[in-house]
Design a protein around this nucleic acid. Sequence first.
DNA 1: CTGGACTGTCAACAACTGTTGGCCTACGAT
DNA 2: ATCGTAGGCCAACAGTTGTTGACAGTCCAG
Lengths: 197, 197
Amino acid sequence: MSAKEFPAPAAAPAARRSDTTRTAILTAARERFAADGYERATIRSIAKDARIDPSMVMRYYGSKEGLFAAVLDVDLRLPDPDGLDPHEVGRTLVGHFLDLWEENEVLTVLLRVGVTNPDGAARMQAIFRDQLMPVALRVCPDPEQAPARAALTSSQVLGMAMARYVLRFPPAVALPREEVVAWLAPTVQRYLTAPHP
Amino acid sequence: MSAKEFPAPAAAPAARRSDTTRTAILTAARERFAADGYERATIRSIAKDARIDPSMVMRYYGSKEGLFAAVLDVDLRLPDPDGLDPHEVGRTLVGHFLDLWEENEVLTVLLRVGVTNPDGAARMQAIFRDQLMPVALRVCPDPEQAPARAALTSSQVLGMAMARYVLRFPPAVALPREEVVAWLAPTVQRYLTAPHP
DNA sequence: CTGGACTGTCAACAACTGTTGGCCTACGAT
DNA sequence: ATCGTAGGCCAACAGTTGTTGACAGTCCAG
């Protein structure tokens, strides 16, 4: 479900005259979805941000849900499980997620919408299952425990993202990045590699 | 802003004939807000659940936001900071929050709406500030670090609630209660009492 | 130059929203 | 028994939403 064209000319990714409009819509949609969530982000407001007519959104993305799906095309780009040091996996993951969250708003969209929209929740489940689980499978002692350990890890990572980037708890926002890593890395490390308590 | 009557007869909490309707509305609203979030939970659907007319909601709670505020009257009922064992604070808090989350849907409402609605986020900030901070102030070594430690604690607690009760990650749901406590308690204990890393 | 496809605008639709006011009913004090 | 009042329902409002179709300008191949 990649964010491609809709009229779909066979399989030619030839540059189109309307590509600038397409990406303008996508950018505006990402910002609006991140700021307002799925329901409150209206097609009209997105269109106004992108300086185009609301009907263009329909033409290029079919529907609001289509646009939404295009925005939610997320790749966590987690490091290759085989290539990472099992003793540093906590620090590595926490740092990587902080990077992801700060580089753009896609994950904010995902979180904000995953909480309200059932499809969003399913998408979020899929992303964490497909992308975080392999890492857990690689580094945790007993493969059978991998799902639980991945869930624990995601809970801490999501929770910090929630407090810091979505709810913006002042102390969580004020915490310097390296301190967040210093506090969270041992937690994640323990969730993934420590013996079952 | 307690969930009281609206026409407000002086200050008499006398039982009213309409109290059953009022609580029916409040219960239905809590469920609908929890299930659908603020925007998608319509007054009409809440009224239908409560088997009354939509206009009754307006009469008793003034507006959708008024109803929402009544639902969000949350008391975490955290244990008295003075009365708890500093060495068991992690286990105590995690257990308490799991209880809270499972006993009714208010916290789900709060979380779901805090993520989408700015007012909800402010409400959530206030709740955690007013109710979790005192505990942190009591048990953490340096009072100056209390806000950061409270934020860290809330991140882990919120994250688990998110994964387990909102997004419903299957492995997080499957985890037995005592295992959640066993994994999270040391984390919270460390966030609150361990020396700064 | 001409045809057709592409890009864009405008106006309108139908559905749904929160909200309001009028009206009827039934209780409870007098 | 009566009468004020609180409880409840109905119909309608104005605004907003996603979505659609007709229409106009623009590009490029023939």
